[in-house]
Design a protein around this nucleic acid. Structure first.
Lengths: 337, 337
DNA sequence: CTGAAAGCGCTAACAC
DNA sequence: GTGTTAGCGCTTTCAG
């Protein structure tokens, strides 16, 4: 029968402070926002009262009065925490600086609960929305735009009157590396599908196609994981027991590691018999052996930049560029020759 | 000069709906909370007005009026996203069911910003706090308790009038496995320090000590990573070039993988020459080769359970047990014999 | 410089 | 059943 103690502590509000300091609540409000010029002496008196009572302004009431919540909504796919940790860190660090709080919303792959998420976000009156979800449909985006709340898209290139984006040009990145391989006469190149990142894998394909086309060749070697396979690893083990390629590209770290393992399973030597590149490198692509060649993408920076842009939008500051392309660096590791 | 369009859409509030439907705002309030008995007909009229206007109740105003925000604060170490993704997923899924939103706060290792976080959480008037941070001091906990807001500690065993916890008994888990090794005459066992998880590593040590003591032996083989080493990997490579042990225990996945690599670097064969166990297994401990023996800890479940308990506390429901111990399963993989 | 008072959008008695 | 009204805690004109 252990219910939890109720919260019935005396509420201490702006009134309590006003009373304690012998001023009006307006004055208290002024000192906590240090707006206007309050006489140094009364200011001090109020501050003492605040300390004495342990007063903290109620952000909810402030939100109502100001019609803004100083909170921003972050929407990410529920399966992404493993590889976007740094992005979130960047986001939160900047949010903290600008006194924004962030609420977390996850979207589940496949389930179309977009409208539910939007509903929650709108009701919460977040001042802005940061969307890290590469599988949103144009229609979803349309829906979001209607609410006229500032947005920044992360890892997706898109902008509008009220939306900016911070992204990495995976197409270009992949184009460059594939081109180099083609130049060296290597053209048996395949890409592993990534169901959780359809749009980004599409960029990878585009970059590859571009490089191929420039050589007058055609590319259509996207390896799709049959839907009956829960884990791509199982399929890949099967696949690589009968297929071999010169170069394999994946998007996510876990896909690359799966390829690595599938090959080891089948005694395919990497990089000697087959090379492997993971587009979006992570700490884990560096932990396996051989380490996997990949693009070093600036996770933390993309997060912090996204939040910084958000604060600019919220302050109606000038935004010279609404689609911010981030730099990447190709890191050659042991999985390529 | 591309500033962002301002949000000057006409606000549609409960008044708009009342007007549109030709009823009072009280009635509208009733239908959106479907409290009381509203005549079916007027109810329908109101609902139509809601749809027509696209009205969404303002959670902030509700929060003010009800003195509760239906939001809970989640505090995690900023370095943890890589391995507690599932925990967060569990948390959020349950929160969604109960209509709670969750705001994210991160604490940075070393930096004592606890008071700042507390400040933000208190100001935000979150209805509850879920704390996943194993490096909080008893004093921090004391501080938090003062605010009299319901808390649940994740991965930490602690409870009070107003706090519950969901945790895994790492001490017992480790005790069991170490005991088995000792029974087999293996006693050259070391534990790798984990600076980011001091309390949990302490549990690991305790479990080991207990097993040792039962055999009349003493344990004091905690390998501390010298503070000048940023990455434990570098230190471990050095360490294992001159040391060898029968069994190595780590807490986190990345530490275990670092050991694996350090050994491979030094040509120490795992598991033949040395065995390795990672206490808190993850998808990555399964991805490396050999796969690392570990305890399968129910990340998702611990998250969802924590949130469920939170909702119970918030509803003043009966909580039969305030410290919930979760089950773990030892998974023998390739890193042990 | 400071106080009085009118909201912000919604809920919850309390009347009718 | 439904409307009226008094807050919830804070900001912000507008006076003084």
């Amino acid at each position: 029968m252990a219910t939890v103690a109720k919260n019935d502590k005396k509420r201490i509000t702006i009134y309590s402070v006003a009373h304690e300091a012998g001023v009006s609540l307006a004055t208290v409000s002024r000192v906590i926002n240090d707006s206007d010029v309050v006489k140094e002496e009364t200011k001090k008196r109020v501050q003492e009262a605040i300390i004495k009572l342990g007063y903290r302004p109620n952000a909810i009431a402030q939100g109502l009065a100001l019609k803004k919540t100083t909170s921003i909504a972050l929407i990410v796919p529920d399966s992404s925490f493993n590889y976007i940790g740094k992005v979130i860190n960047g986001l939160l660090d900047v949010a903290k600086i600008y006194k924004y709080s962030v609420t977390l919303h996850t979207s589940t792959e496949g389930i179309n609960e977009m409208s539910e998420i939007v509903d929650n976000v709108i009701k919460s009156h977040a001042d802005g929305i940061i969307l890290y979800n590469d599988s949103f449909s144009p229609q979803d985006i349309e829906t979001l735009n209607e609410f006229n709340v500032p947005m920044v898209y992360l890892d997706n290139c898109y902008s509008s009157d009220i939306a900016c984006s911070v992204y990495i040009d995976y197409k270009q990145a992949v184009y460059e590396v594939v081109k180099k391989y083609l130049d060296n006469g290597i053209d048996d190149i395949v890409i592993i599908e990534d169901r959780k990142n359809p749009i980004n894998i599409e960029e990878v394909v585009k970059g590859t196609k571009k490089a191929f086309e420039e050589k007058g060749k055609q590319f259509d070697a996207l390896i799709r994981i049959p839907s009956e396979y829960h884990s791509s690893y199982n399929y890949l083990v099967e696949y690589f027991s009968t297929h071999k390629h010169q170069l394999v590209l994946t998007y996510r770290d876990s896909q690359a590691i799966a390829v690595l393992n599938a090959c080891s399973e089948n005694n395919v030597k990497i990089p000697d018999e087959m090379e492997l590149i993971c587009v979006r490198g992570s700490r884990y692509t560096d932990m396996v052996r051989p380490q996997i060649s990949s693009f070093e993408v600036p996770g933390y920076d993309s997060g912090s930049l996204a939040m910084r842009i958000m604060t600019k939008m919220l302050n109606n500051e000038d935004i010279p560029q609404k689609e911010l392309k981030l730099n990447y660096v190709y890191k050659k590791k042991g999985s390529t020759k």
